[in-house]
Nucleic acid binder design. Structure first.
Lengths: 224, 224
DNA sequence: TTAGGTAATTACTAATATGGATATTACAGA
DNA sequence: TCTGTAATATCCATATTAGTAATTACCTAA
């Protein structure tokens, strides 16, 4: 706890696992790295400045790189292997940012949004148009941890609703859960559990435009 | 992702929430801070060196300050408010180290082991001989988060067994759970759930020295 | 207008898990 | 040998859950 001034310090970065569910699949927003000696696709990130907290850094990165400062986020974990970045010692505090697919639609990104698939073995893999893309740094491992965390928190927290718009149908909730868990669920028990939990309230309105019987729209009950 | 060399960096520290259960109470090992402008009691910690990973730093701090490098630990979260340390910008990666009370018995610490109590309101409070002691930095908030995490993981992970010696009785397991949850549990259902889970195996041996009927000793089944 | 198709919603039943009380067993010490 | 205490086993009522089947509602197209 001494030498606070002269201590040789690692760099500290914030990396964002910006997750969404599109067409029943869990996906991560990745950016292609600039031309340096670390090729591949990576989560967007930025360094922590001396006068900004971690949360402020996350908001800054969201605004700078994604143009979406409003997304809700929560901390996942911190990764600090000595050689995880070949350019120098970087400790990354990783946050998950969860948002509905629509929120990323008009994204002013020059980089490409890349689907992520493949939970098998706990290792993530970036995929674009069916072709496998390499992930930079330890980001494959990190995305594997993201999925583990999402699965673990799915049925006791309101984390799943972060992927949905303000008003949603029960089917949409189930689609999100199935995408995260990677398996199909039975409809009646799922609906019952969801409604019994008391986290959502019916709006009395119904979806429109569908070809068949419209489902009722629900909203998330505000937190106490 | 530029200026890896010249970037003005925060300090990075590892702080340890060394938790144990003694006499049915959850306690944290705290050290009294040296005389500087941050008074109070704090979790032991140390800075992250350029050539050591986070895990290696934890092992180093455990060896240096506690003399117990063998304790199992896991990451809790990272705290990075700008003003959390008045001496300068410090980002703390906090780890939980869970150990049986016996492991801390012969501890070569010049500092004092302090009981921690008071989950009420989610704010921790250091207590010694019934007198309240102030916690330094944001360590009260962090210890509150530790308890939340322990409670959350208690019944789907093997985290509770980290507080017990290799061979233990079912009653000891229940005591640990009650200490962490802060409430008493019914014995028969607790035993059933524990045994049905298949995480522990009976040794066929029994405790000795007790005044009454001896309980069977169990061990934790090794992880697959 | 009306029949057909599909998905939303409800109703029902069997299986399982849970909580809690009660009884039985085993040991130490008087 | 008796007594006290805690470990262990037994039991039952209740709550929860999974799954199947039936019903309802809307859109489409003839």
């Amino acid at each position: 706890m001494s030498n606070l001034e002269t201590y040789p310090r690692p760099s500290v970065a914030v990396d964002l696992a910006i997750m969404t569910v599109v067409d029943g699949a869990l996906k991560a927003l990745l950016v292609e790295r600039p031309e340096d000696n670390v090729p591949g696709w990576a989560m967007p990130g930025g360094f922590v400045y001396l006068d900004q907290s971690l949360d402020q850094t996350v908001a800054r990165v969201l605004a700078e790189k994604v143009g979406q400062p409003q997304v809700r986020f929560e901390q996942l974990a911190t990764y600090g292997a000595v050689d995880r970045d070949p350019r120098g010692r970087v400790i990354s505090v990783v946050y998950m940012a969860l948002c509905p697919a629509a929120a990323l639609a008009g994204m002013p990104l020059s980089t490409i949004r890349v689907a992520w698939e493949g939970v098998a073995g706990g290792v993530a893999e970036a995929v674009q148009n069916g072709a496998s893309l390499p992930l930079a740094f330890d980001h494959a491992e990190i995305l594997g941890d993201v999925v583990k965390r999402l699965r673990g928190k799915l049925d006791y927290s309101r984390i799943g609703f972060a992927f949905l718009p303000q008003r949603f149908t029960l089917r949409e909730v189930q689609e999100v859960h199935e995408a995260i868990l990677g398996r199909s669920l039975n409809k009646p028990p799922f609906r019952r559990k969801l409604l019994d939990r008391g986290m959502i309230i019916p709006t009395g309105e119904f979806e429109t435009g569908g070809a068949y019987r419209p489902a009722e729209l629900y909203t998330l009950k505000p937190e106490e």
